[in-house]
């Protein structure tokens, strides 16, 4: 599905991603872990088209996508969530969802004015779909609230629902379980598994081991911009170099 090949990126002088390579297999959840500052978010940003790597390739479904820019990458079906949730704070929850749907006829200026009938039909379907997604994540009651008034956990859920609304092929989740209550974390994990059953591929950054053992088929460990190891969660956790990297990074991954 997605191949990352020798990707490098530096912010000014500091190398954030230093020759990183791994594959994200089709219809699987790949966990991406590593100490803080390992370059996970930076790598996600590069895949999503927000940053251009200084070298290396990113291949999605057989085409190179590095440096295409966010818009074109998103249109290929790669959708992401943000490490700190970014809702459209002043817009209602419902609008936050419907907005995300791809290929809306009424998004074109002229069509919006003169093809009302056409987009209105589509809009109705999208709203039904958004409604069911809201139910899926348990936010139905909040549909008219401005997204800025949601709690942290609700925002995470809204981000996931919004990403689903966009009909992704590949989903990039940056710490979807950070800072939420265990019950919500369980719900998020469940929803991610359901996505995979619907045929979506997921790459997820997380620190929490319980969460990872719930969702991830496979784990990639990053440290200092490179891939340290790859394997199932239990394999990886038994690896001394991984433990050393976490300790060296001054951060012990969340306990189970």
């Amino acid at each position: 599905m997605l191949q990352i090949e020798e990707v490098e990126f530096a912010y000014g002088g500091s190398q954030a991603v230093a020759g990183c390579s791994f594959d994200v297999p089709d219809r699987k959840v790949t966990g991406l872990i590593g100490p803080n500052g390992a370059g996970k978010s930076t790598l996600m940003e590069i895949i999503a088209g927000g940053l251009t790597p200084s070298s290396g390739r990113i291949v999605f479904d057989g085409t190179e996508i590095q440096g295409l820019g966010r818009i074109r990458v998103a249109r290929l079906g790669i959708i992401r969530t943000f490490q700190t949730p970014r809702e459209l704070t002043r817009l209602p929850v419902m609008e936050n969802l419907v907005f995300a749907a791809p290929n809306q006829i009424g998004e074109r200026p002229l069509q919006s004015l003169f093809r009302r009938g056409r987009w209105a039909a589509q809009e109705r379907e999208l709203r039904l779909k958004a409604e069911s997604l809201l139910e899926w994540v348990g936010l139905t009651k909040l549909r008219e609230e401005p997204a800025g008034s949601l709690s942290g956990g609700q925002r995470r859920l809204l981000e996931i629902a919004r990403a689903m609304m966009a009909e992704p092929k590949l989903l990039l989740l940056d710490e979807p379980s950070a800072g939420v209550f265990p019950a919500v974390r369980k719900l998020i994990a469940e929803r991610i598994r359901e996505m995979v059953e619907r045929g979506i591929t997921v790459l997820v950054v997380a620190h929490n081991m319980a969460f990872l053992s719930d969702v991830a088929d496979d784990v990639v460990v990053m440290a200092q911009g490179k891939v340290l190891r790859r394997g199932t969660l239990s394999e990886v956790r038994a690896d001394e170099s991984v433990v050393a990297a976490y300790l060296g990074g001054g951060h012990v991954g969340g306990t189970s």
Partner: peptide, 24 residues
């Protein structure tokens, strides 16, 4: 219309709008 919604989305956060493939 959906176009207006896209405009508002860009106004609120153009990175998010671009991340969903909107023509910012």
């Amino acid at each position: 219309s959906p176009y207006g919604r896209v405009l508002r989305a860009i106004r609120e956060d153009d990175v998010v709008a671009a991340s969903f493939g909107k023509a910012t």
